[in-house]
């Protein structure tokens, strides 16, 4: 059986909120290392990969592999009933029909309990090859969100060009063009404001802004976001969570001109 207790419901609320517009039905794969999720959007352009390590829960117990097939719209409805600071416990039997969620208020003696019916989801699982990326950019997640939103006002696509000079986000649209360039930057007092660019070779790729703006819903999960790029491979956008847990998005590039 599965029993996984989160100190704050907030974490799951934010994760589900960040992915629910991209993917609808997904398997939460539970085993002794934690709870993982991998799902592609309907058009096979973007993929979300979540890992909540067992260390992110206290306690965490999962004796055998359990796949919880959950509709994220349903999960969102139930998670709305949890306060951000509630203690959240997920429970399921070994061959479950439902997943049980318990929300406990730390301040009062209120305990609420919900069951969500599970679905049988036959999900294609993709192998993601280990990639040595040509460019890795760490930057404030709020800055990335702002750039994507600002450029989406002009265009559907953004080119991300990484060179010795820095990283340039550029777009061209009907009303004109725009770009934002960032250089490496260290803020001793506020390390979450750092911009770090690790480059082995110059990269230039074009991506759909609609998807990037969607990924940015995860911004409240982490002060920093990591962008990993290599020519002609999908972009990796990673939000690191505590205890080596993470929320990653992959986005296929656009080609041609």
């Amino acid at each position: 059986m599965l029993e996984a207790r989160l100190e704050q419901a907030n974490l799951l609320k934010k994760v589900v909120d960040a992915i629910k517009d991209l993917v609808q039905d997904c398997n939460f794969d539970c085993n002794d290392s934690g709870i993982a999720l991998q799902a592609m959007d309907n058009s096979h352009v973007a993929l979300v990969s979540m890992m909540l390590k067992s260390e992110s829960f206290s306690p965490f117990r999962c004796d055998r592999n359990i796949a919880l097939g959950i509709n994220l719209t349903s999960l969102t409805k139930v998670l709305r009933a949890a306060q951000n600071e509630d203690i959240l416990t997920l429970k399921a039997e070994d061959a479950p029909d439902v997943v049980n969620l318990v929300f406990e208020s730390a301040e009062s003696d209120r305990i609420s309990e919900y069951d969500i019916k599970l679905m049988d989801i036959d999900q294609e699982h993709l192998g993601i090859p280990e990639t040595e990326y040509a460019a890795t950019i760490s930057m404030p997640s709020a800055e990335f969100q702002r750039i994507c939103r600002d450029l989406m006002a002009l265009s559907e696509s953004v080119s991300i060009e990484c060179s010795k000079e820095g990283v340039k986000f550029a777009c061209q649209g009907d009303i004109g063009s725009g770009s934002v360039t960032l250089r490496s930057h260290t803020n001793v007092d506020k390390p979450e404001m750092n911009v770090e660019i690790d480059l082995t070779e110059p990269v230039s790729l074009t991506f759909s802004l609609k998807y990037l703006v969607g990924f940015c819903k995860a911004s409240s999960l982490s002060g920093q976001v990591k962008l990993c790029l290599s020519n002609e491979v999908p972009l990796l956008v990673e939000y690191a969570l505590a205890n080596n847990s993470y929320l990653r998005f992959y986005l296929a590039p656009k080609i041609g001109d």
Binding site: H44, H125, L126, G127, I128, T206, A252, K254, I255
Partner: peptide, 14 residues
């Protein structure tokens, strides 16, 4: 003129 690629081109099915 720009073509959106899909992830199937890059990631293999397991």
């Amino acid at each position: 003129h720009q073509v959106q690629q899909t992830l199937d081109t890059f990631f293999c099915s397991r």
